[in-house]
Design a protein around this nucleic acid. Structure first.
Lengths: 273, 273
DNA sequence: CGCTATGTTGAGGGAGATCAAAGACTGTGG
DNA sequence: CCACAGTCTTTGATCTCCCTCAACATAGCG
């Protein structure tokens, strides 16, 4: 089967952000094992065979997609970081999640056929949009792909339920601690230090995500600093004693981000052997 | 293909609640169009063909499944009502959702293979457990089944994200109003009055779901009553002017419960024609 | 460098929590 | 049928965590 051309339907038209060079082979992508298109192309032994995907760039502050736009594709983060936000009629917003490299987002649009959130780049970002319909068709032929799609959606659901617990039952300090521990874990999952990393998002975004104000986030961070739990310099965070911190705020984070790790992608690859 | 016997793996062993008569034909079920097993059996023209499912009864307060137990099946509510709750290590709990007849629950266990919530009956309840592995296998053969599974999971995700918005950005009064409007809509979807219905859950459960205390729920309900917005008598609720109420608390509830309505099941039926 | 967005810290107020106590409903057993 | 216990609901009084408003510091950027 010949590689199909990228369909125009995949290209979002609402922003000046350039769609980067198409046709770049997945095998040249650093995400390698962590990315949906990468896993898929390995199955088919060629760049983009059945699947339709396109690469997108967004600068800091630019929008990947808006709430209400038709849903065509899920998005794998290649580099950078994004936030997804829900909005109320009167303009109040709630950050629903942060998305790091290797993670997959956009499944909330499947049901209604329209995106439920607005997704914004927190910094310069590259993503791969994987067309949903072809993905579904592929899943029909490859049960392991189907299983991983289910797994990704279920992970998102578990994460959202955990966030409900956080918002509904935890104090502001516990919420912030849970976020910091989560970001630490995700940094580690990407091969970075779990004890020292940069916050990709503003205090305002953190506050919105945690259901508190930016001022409260500042005060809490200052408090952690005063307690010698961590060093904070604007967006730079360093845990002084990560195990101790985790012990104090021990509410176990028992969900995982929606990324396909090597294991899963490897299994996809085996599907055709 | 012969109907397979119900596997033992489907039968939960942790409670004295009886598993009701197995082998009851789905076509005799009142849920008819709204239920997963019903839709499936219509496809196969016989009670339970490929699919494995079992019926469960729970009395008020009994548990359908517990957090941490192995995930085997999703559950369709036939009658009654249930709540799902998350727990923190120190015992704090958060009600993550209420489940009404026709709705499907349990997808949060797919990713980890273990249930993330504990699901408890709010009143006497009948459910159908649909084994997940056979369901996945069937979805591979019937794309419309696959599509509906995706739709159900995505609906759950959208609902959870909406709940984040509610918990993170709305006042206590707005949260309660949103819940009442939601319950009204779901009652209407089951063919009941949208203006008058019974609350299936305690003030405590409502409070937990909304991230407030039971006392606050009481005070707010009294407030609504004093404002002539609704009549409340313990668990009986009657809207005096539903459109007005919806106008005041206009934050649009833009997600739908995870139920397969007639439309979807009908499409499943067409899959083999 | 000045300008703007973002971050930090303080003072005061308010929405909702907590504590307490009384009233209502439900089931049980006599 | 009623009395009783237990749970759930309601209402009040007080407290507190976090919000709001405000001033200032800092960082990023043309």
């Amino acid at each position: 089967m010949q590689p199909l051309p990228i369909t125009r339907s995949l290209e979002h038209t609402h922003s000046a952000a350039a769609v980067s060079t198409l046709g770049t082979a997945c095998c040249s992508c650093q995400l390698s094992l962590a990315c949906v298109p990468c896993g898929l192309s390995r199955i088919n032994q060629q760049p983009h065979p059945v699947m339709l995907f396109s690469r997108h760039r967004r600068l800091a502050g630019e929008i990947l997609y808006r709430k209400g736009e038709p849903f065509h594709a899920v998005h794998a983060v290649r580099s950078g970081a994004l936030k997804s936000a829900m909005t109320l009629a009167d303009g109040r917003t709630q950050v629903a999640g942060f998305h790091m490299p290797g993670e997959v987002l956009g499944f909330d649009g499947v049901a209604s056929g329209r995106h439920q959130c607005t997704v914004t780049a927190l910094e310069d970002t590259q993503t791969c949009a994987v067309a949903y319909e072809p993905l579904l068709a592929l899943a029909t032929r490859l049960p392991l792909v189907q299983r991983d799609l289910h797994r990704l959606m279920s992970l998102e659901l578990a994460r959202a339920q955990w966030q409900m617990l956080l918002l509904g039952s935890m104090s502001a300090a516990e919420r912030l601690a849970a976020l910091l521990l989560d970001l630490s874990r995700r940094a580690a999952a990407r091969g970075h230090s779990p004890t020292e990393f940069n916050l990709r998002m503003s205090r305002c975004d953190i506050g919105s995500y945690l259901g508190v104000t930016a001022e409260t986030v500042c005060r809490l961070l200052s408090g952690f600093k005063a307690s010698n739990l961590l060093e904070v310099d604007t967006r730079r965070v360093r845990f002084l004693d990560l195990p101790a911190f985790a012990r104090i705020y021990s509410a176990t984070v028992n969900w995982r981000p929606s990324r396909l790790h090597g294991e899963a992608s490897a299994r996809w690859g085996q599907a055709l052997e």
